[in-house]
Write a protein that binds this DNA or RNA. Structure first.
Lengths: 153, 153
DNA sequence: CGAATTAGTTAGCATAGCTAACTATATTGC
DNA sequence: GCAATATAGTTAGCTATGCTAACTAATTCG
């Protein structure tokens, strides 16, 4: 016998392939909740970074969203006109701006996030306890992978 | 004592929240490989559905991509002009078109997919065997969740 | 102080989403 | 069997989101 337990097709390439597909399909489903926010994907995502990451400059926000400054400039403009964020001038550096979510923006984002998470949670409730445990452990591993990823690029 | 083992914060809401975040971050990283394909995200994704799902009509392809027919019509037009797909008239129904990937399109998609998966696999190679095993089991669970999801909506 | 660098914006282009309106083909009903 | 209806796809025109190039304003450096 080769090995006692499940050496079957769990090499990195195979797991990466299936994990990749799973992530795509998972997000495709939860994303359908977003229309209720009245915001497009780019604006919603930028607002999310601000709510969870705190106030930051336009350049930092653009980098976080993997987008160029002109693109973020327009998104910020739209979010500001919708009163979801506010712009504060930087005391130390007159060129920089500090972008931070308003109470309205924070509330809207949390509501949207709750809808997404609830849609996923509704599916997870159908799982066995042991399966939930496996997914729980998987999230911890993936969070570590993500941290390692950020360091190297 | 309340419970012997890891009842700690692995309720559906909490796991859903972390899984959701993990999926976002995972895709944000692998997506950076896509510029090498020379295609935008919508075209790449539509081509992927055709390569893995086989030839289908425009309406079916639009539904698979959660997009309206006019949007898909333009994407298909661009993919055809790039010779990555070809259009065949349906024998039974003169209104329908059958869209299928060309050899060139299939090759391009697979190359792009390999780059994405390789980027993820490179990170997974740093994990312990037991962790890979956990992720492997997680993908199986998530694939089942996805199948259940498709049925109910 | 002047030159180079840096932060952000503006202009202009391509892609990607939508609805409304259109064309062409199928299906239905009398 | 043909008129009415339904369905598949396209076209037109709008908004949103991505880019590069070029600009303005502020900072930093020699």
């Amino acid at each position: 016998m080769k090995e006692s337990k499940s050496k079957i097709a769990n090499d990195p390439e195979s797991v990466a392939d299936r994990l990749h597909s799973a992530a795509i399909h998972l997000l495709r489903h939860v994303r359908r909740q977003d229309s209720a926010t009245g915001l497009g994907p780019a604006r919603l995502s930028a607002l999310s970074v601000l709510v969870f990451g705190g106030a930051m400059s336009l350049k930092q926000l653009a980098a976080a969203e993997q987008v160029k400054p002109p693109t973020m400039s327009r998104i910020v403009d739209a979010l500001q006109r919708a009163a979801l964020i506010e712009i504060v001038g930087d005391e130390k550096d007159g060129r920089r701006i500090l972008i931070r979510p308003t109470a309205k923006g924070t509330k809207l984002l949390h509501a949207g996030r709750r809808r997404r998470v609830a849609a996923l949670a509704a599916q997870l409730k159908l799982l066995e306890v042991a399966e939930m445990e496996t997914l729980f452990q998987a999230t911890s591993i993936l969070e570590r992978v993500d941290r390692g990823w950020k360091e190297h690029s």
